[in-house]
Every structure is written in structure tokens, then in C-alpha cells.
Design a protein around this nucleic acid. Structure first.
Lengths: 216, 216
DNA sequence: TTATATTTCGAACGTTCGTTCGAATTTTAC
DNA sequence: GTAAAATTCGAACGAACGTTCGAAATATAA
């Protein structure tokens, strides 16, 4: 029973270059189909038709369909986190860091829209150890947001401690950002990649200073 | 083909009291299962087991499983909208109206958590005319939000017109509110129903005046 | 080339699913 | 009570699904 394990066992092969390249490709294409049709509406036969691999051949790369979903989710999450670390290196000040986090989140979202749709919309359909591990990553991401918020709050109130208001704020920002997958449409002119930066700035402004304070 | 119709035909019976009472019950219980296990992971057989109706008997009340999902979504949406109308009657001023909208949204969310989870998480899995009709309702809800925001903006800038910044703001608030279904947990002490009002107030404050301005 | 390990595949298994249909049962109206 | 209408049901259909398995093909290393 997989769900008994602390860490789900996924690897068939660790070494081979060829193997991991193909796995990447499978994850990407699968994410694309999952994003378009939904996880449950996409059969493994659909995947095998879309890629050039036989039905049985796919099972060399994952051992259940749920694991495939897990691998997509995990890979997406890890990528967001590591690109966030990269970005935050050069940024000082909690507000600026928060701005960078929003930029990172949305930029990653729209350049990997398929995978992120899957992550945001399907990943809590996972169960057992798969669910737990993704949940853990989500928790740690939220923790980082809460820490930044606390830093900001401490500027005006140095003795501020982590409380419900901060938690609700973090969850609100998280929801604000994640909801974009439901309306962001790369084929719309006004949603061009260049404008994603603008949208992210707008959201940061909105979150930090509110709608009534914001100037267009 | 249903998707050809402007308005999906759903009614088997319009009149009978008995009929519509039982339909209500079915929608509610189905929403509960869909919310817990997900739409795709719940079979009609699961429903028939949970209620006391045979598999075939259920099909007297809807003609496809997708229609069942549609009926749940539509009913939820209509309820939110009509309770919103009720609430707004006694409220003056756009900020206050916006606050009432957030209150309404979240209150309805948590008192009909199951149905709203389904609406927020599964309803864009609908297709054809079903999808179109729900989308239309969503669009009109967003329009109302945008109108309120525009009213607010016009206080400081009377010539303000509907623009992208307002749209992003509305979508952000929408996301903020809708995301609650992923984290709100009625069994947690701090999420008690009494506190929902507080959470809603906090969100309104957050949205209107921003995180840094907000006092706990 | 040969032996070994990696990768791919066709074919099939058992299960579950949504849906249908005609008959049986229950409710309603007179 | 009787006839008509509304409601429920058992049984079955065909289709689609995730997964498995042993054999075939291909790449790798000697």
C-alpha cells in the first residue's frame, strides 16, 4: 500500500539520460492534455495516442495514472520553488520580496500554464502519500508567504506575532494568484506575456495597498 | 444534441410538489458526495447507495450525470445571486455594498460548502450549453463586482471608465473568495461560523485598503 | 559479435461505468 | 373502487477504463 510510505516510491530508473528525458517529455505532454480535458477525462489511451508510445509502453515510466498526476504536480511545485529562490537572492526588503514572489508565481504560471492548471486544479485529488507530500510543499510555500507578511507587519508593529489575520491574508493572496488559471488566456492580446508583469504588479499593489489606494 | 440548444432542457416535471422536493434532496446529497469524493470519483451507483433510490430510479430526476452536475451548479449560483439581491437592498454606498457582497459570498459558501465546492471546482468541467449557461452567470456576477468597483473609483476620479485594472481587481477578489473552499474547514475552532463574518470583513478590508494599512 | 540491460509492444483481463427499457409498484384524481 | 398518471425498480447492454504480462525489439558495453 503506497499510502503507508513516508515518501512515495516513484523511480523506476534513476540513472539513464534517455529515460529521464523521455519522462520529462511525457510529463509535459500529459500536463497539456490534463489541462485541456481534465485529469479524469483523459485516458492513458489518449496519452498514448498523443505521444508516440504504446499504451503498455507508458507504464514503463509511471506505475499508476495517479503517480503520473503526482509527478506532474511535484515537478511543477519544485520548479516554482527553485525559481523563487533564484529570484529572491537579489531582492532586499519584505515588500520587494513579496512583489518578487508574485512575479515569480504568475510568470511561472503563464509560461507553464498547462502544468500549473493541473497543479492548482487536480492535485488535491491525490490520495495517501502523494497527497501528503504535495500538501507539505504547499504548506511550506504558505509559510514563506506568512513570514514575509510578518516582516512587513513588524515594520509598523515590531512585536507582531503570527496570527489568524496574517494567515487569512496569505491564503487570500494565494487564492488571488492561483485563481488566474481560470481566466488567464494567453491568446488574448491584453494577456500578452509582457503584460503578465503588469498584472503581477497590479496584484501586489492591490494586496499591499488596497483597491482604493491604487492608482492605475 | 443538447449542446445545440440555447437553453438546456432539463425539466422532466415542472408541477409535482413531491417531485421537486425529492429533486432538491437528491441535489443536496449528490453535492455532498461530489464535494467529498469529487465528481468523477462518484458513480451514480454511489449516489443510489447513499440515498434510498435504485440506480435506474435516479434517472427519473436527471437524464445524464452531467445534467446532475449542471443542476447543482445552477441552483447554487442562483441562490447566491438571489441572496445577494436580498442583502444589497438595505445597503448604501459602494464600499458597503462590496462588503456585503463578500459577506454574502463567504456566508453562502460555508453554509452550503458542499455545493459551493462543486460549483467552484467542477462546474467548468461542464460542456456545451451547460457550460455556456454557468459561464453566463459567472460573467454577470463579475459584472456586478466591476460595477461596484467602478463606483468606488469614481469617488476619487469621477471620469473613470471600466479598464483592465478594474477587471484584474474584480478577478482577484473573486479568486480570493473562491479559494476559500480549499482551506476553509468548518470543524476547526477558528473557522467557526461566527468567525466567517470576521474572515469576510478581513478580506474586504484587505481588498479595499491593503495589507499594510490594515489593523488587526 | 556477443551477451546483457533497457525499452517497447500487442493482446488481453477484469472491473466499473453511464445509460436504457419494460415491467412493476405506488400515488393521485374521480 | 377504478382508471390514469407518476414513480420506482431489476436486469442487462455496450463501451471505456486502468493495468498486467510475456515476448519482441532496441540500445549498450565488452
Amino acid at each position: 500500500m503506497v499510502s503507508d510510505l513516508i515518501e512515495p516510491e516513484t523511480a523506476v530508473q534513476e540513472n539513464s539520460e534517455r529515460y529521464s528525458l523521455k519522462l520529462r517529455d511525457i510529463l509535459e505532454r500529459a500536463a497539456s492534455l490534463f489541462a485541456r480535458e481534465g485529469y479524469h477525462n483523459t485516458s492513458i489511451r489518449d496519452l498514448s495516442r498523443d505521444m508516440d508510445i504504446s499504451l503498455a509502453g507508458l507504464y514503463y515510466y509511471f506505475k499508476t495514472k495517479e503517480e503520473l498526476l503526482f509527478l506532474i504536480s511535484k515537478h511543477s511545485f519544485d520548479s516554482v520553488l527553485s525559481s523563487l529562490d533564484e529570484r529572491l537572492k537579489d531582492v532586499r526588503g519584505p515588500e520587494q520580496k513579496l512583489g518578487a514572489l508574485v512575479q515569480n508565481h504568475l510568470q511561472y504560471f503563464v509560461t507553464h500554464l498547462d502544468a500549473m492548471k493541473v497543479l492548482a486544479h487536480e492535485s488535491d485529488g491525490l490520495r495517501g502519500a502523494y497527497f501528503d507530500l504535495i500538501q507539505k510543499k504547499k504548506r511550506s510555500y504558505l509559510d514563506r508567504m506568512e513570514s514575509l507578511l510578518l516582516e512587513i507587519e513588524r515594520k509598523s508593529n515590531p512585536s507582531a506575532r503570527r496570527n489568524d489575520a496574517v494567515k487569512v491574508a496569505a491564503l487570500s493572496l494565494f487564492g488571488m494568484m492561483n485563481w488566474t488559471y481560470t481566466w488567464y488566456n494567453p491568446s488574448k492580446r491584453e494577456h500578452s506575456l509582457a503584460n503578465v508583469r503588469r498584472i503581477a504588479d497590479r496584484m501586489t499593489e492591490l494586496f499591499l495597498h488596497g483597491f482604493v489606494r491604487t492608482k492605475k
